[in-house]
């Protein structure tokens, strides 16, 4: 197989390619047109591009073929779509670019789009966000649903897109750069609680897969593997990818939030105190 075969999609999805092109197009044009002082630095642009690229790579290159016929590669795919890619995108803080485009939307459109904003607010309630984040992992890994999702092309695409979009929502809620003391973003304590709960719930599932003696996901057995790997090894590796990296990412997320909380501790309250003092 030539290099091109590895880079071209296994299962070409025009909608997916178009979505990624639009995202990168809007991001790039936004960067070029926005005022210099708002523009994110090189590292942030790199993080955003890398996040988008790895998500694209696992959906629209040869990687997707292996993800369809190997359980552990499939778990790796979801690790990128639901965790690593969205984490990079959220940490890159694309807010200035989004704000730039938001200001370009006409007031009429803003009014019609308002219900979407409400819907977004509902989805970003910490409990709902946690439920969606962990619930989707459990849902798609429920053995009978997983079997169907791997057999049906439509369900497979719904699965991967739902993981990616939910990953973006969740990690944006967690890594929202706006300080909660002065904006409506979620407080650091709650963010850490949500991360801890998500970590523990994913560890349960991962541990269950790792320590299962039977074949839980036999669809790869029935439909043939990409190469002859021992089914138990495949399941063990897949279980470990569900178990360890997500738990580590929860902990890293908590540490990051602690750092931010300590950094900002007293910053805004002192300011308001100073304001009070000067006022009196």
């Amino acid at each position: 197989m030539s290099l091109l075969d590895y880079l071209l999609p296994y299962d070409f999805s025009p909608l997916t390619v178009l979505s990624y092109m639009l995202v990168m197009g809007f991001y790039g044009i936004g960067l070029l047109r926005m005022p210099d002082q708002d523009r994110p630095g090189a590292l942030r642009i790199f993080a955003f591009t890398l996040g988008v690229l790895i998500c694209y790579a696992v959906m629209q290159t040869r990687f997707d073929y292996y993800a369809q016929y190997m359980f552990f590669v499939h778990r790796g795919q979801h690790l990128i779509l639901h965790h690593i890619g969205p984490i990079l995108i959220a940490l890159s803080n694309p807010l200035p670019v989004m704000r730039f485009w938001f200001e370009k939307i006409s007031p009429g459109w803003k009014r019609t789009l308002r219900p979407l904003g409400w819907f977004y607010q509902v989805l970003q309630q910490p409990f709902i966000a946690l439920f969606l984040f962990v619930g989707l992992i459990y849902f798609w890994l429920w053995p009978s649903i997983h079997f169907d999702a791997m057999l049906s092309r439509d369900l497979y695409w719904v699965m991967n897109w739902s993981m990616l979009l939910d990953g973006l929502l969740f990690w944006w809620l967690i890594f929202d750069p706006r300080p909660p003391a002065i904006t409506s973003s979620l407080g650091y304590g709650r963010r850490m609680l949500v991360l801890a709960a998500a970590g523990v719930l994913q560890m349960f599932l991962g541990a269950w897969i790792v320590f299962s003696r039977d074949m839980v996901y036999d669809v790869y057995e029935v439909c043939g593997r990409a190469w002859p790997l021992d089914p138990e090894v495949d399941q063990l590796l897949g279980g470990m990818l569900t178990y360890i990296p997500p738990a580590m990412m929860s902990i890293l997320g908590i540490l990051l939030m602690l750092r931010r909380a300590m950094h900002q501790d007293g910053k805004y309250t002192n300011q308001s105190k100073q304001l009070e003092e000067t006022a009196s």
């Binding site: 979505s19 639009l22 995202v23 670019v97 485009w101 789009l113 819907f119 739902s162 979009l165």
Partner: peptide, 15 residues
Amino acid sequence: MRTRFWRQRNKIISA
């Protein structure tokens, strides 16, 4: 970009 994302997500979520 934002609206594109939202529309896409809405579709998937409703599906």
